[in-house]
Design a protein around this nucleic acid. Structure first.
Lengths: 92, 92, 92, 92
DNA sequence: AACGTTGAAATAGTTC
DNA sequence: GAACTATTTCAACGTT
């Protein structure tokens, strides 16, 4: 650690508090998700199956994302995209 | 599932999309947190220790007071506390 | 898997059976614990509180000393501890 | 709770210590299982697959057990077993 | 007996 | 790629 108790202490505190805030937001979202599942269950849906569906869709999406990344690489190699911009900027 | 393909299908889709949106937000926050840790590391801090501090602070914050009263009765019965002092006095 | 159907098959079976035996023993112990709780409940004790006490005693026993030294440095930097005292002195 | 600090205290302590001993044994078994998995991994086996196999075998066994229970019920209904004894007399 | 809650197990992700 | 940590999932338990 660079320094104890001085400026570094303040810096560390700031970093930690930023993380704690972000984690708090994550926890809120987790609670929201839990609520939606509870609502779904109350309506008669099987949440275990829902979880599976969501997992599958996420994996499918990852595959698609991966494909798109590859596609961009090829496009760029072919001069179909500018060299300096990220691929996702193309949709802006 | 209450009904397949009709209104229930729409309802299910809606629930799943809500969850997916919330999970996407969570992923964004996770990425943010990761960034802060990377920044901290770049400044020379030990991220492993930082994680421990954050964990400890979180546990400290957890409110256990409401059940301590009952617990004290049992602890006292077990000799884990003196008969005459309140629980919180034990650490003084 | 290193080899299918030959020696590896026997090896695999042996490993799996060892695990299954250990898990069976675990299940027996869980049943024993459940019995003790049932007995306690029959005698008039509040098993929920008992579980809490057991959890607390387990946590108390956990050894965290080795990492406290490093932690103290950081905690001090965060103002969570006085500059001059060791961490362990705070509980004295 | 029946009584605080007197005989009940001793009784409670005894119950808790019995549970703690059983839980300690459980923890030992868990560690043993972990070791076996580590050994398996070291030999080149895929532990994730192993876990699946063990789960499947356990479920199959549960099915068999359930079948046997049903079988007993039918047997009893048919007078092939005495009315007053449970099928698994060994558990008495 | 269904519900929510909690604790353990498994998996995924991250770091070294 | 191996170990550790964090997250997620699954099962058990008490409760209503």
């Amino acid at each position: 650690m660079p320094d104890v108790g001085g400026i570094a202490g303040e810096r560390l505190r700031s970093l930690i508090e930023r993380i704690e805030r972000l984690e708090e937001e994550k926890r809120t979202l987790s609670a929201d998700i839990k609520e939606v599942y509870a609502e779904a269950k109350g309506t008669g849906f099987d949440t275990k199956i829902m979880r599976q569906i969501i997992r599958i869709r996420r994996m499918d999406k990852d595959d698609v994302d991966e494909q798109e990344t590859l596609l961009d690489i090829y496009k760029r190699a072919l001069g179909m995209l500018p060299d300096t911009e990220p691929a996702s900027a193309a949709a802006e």
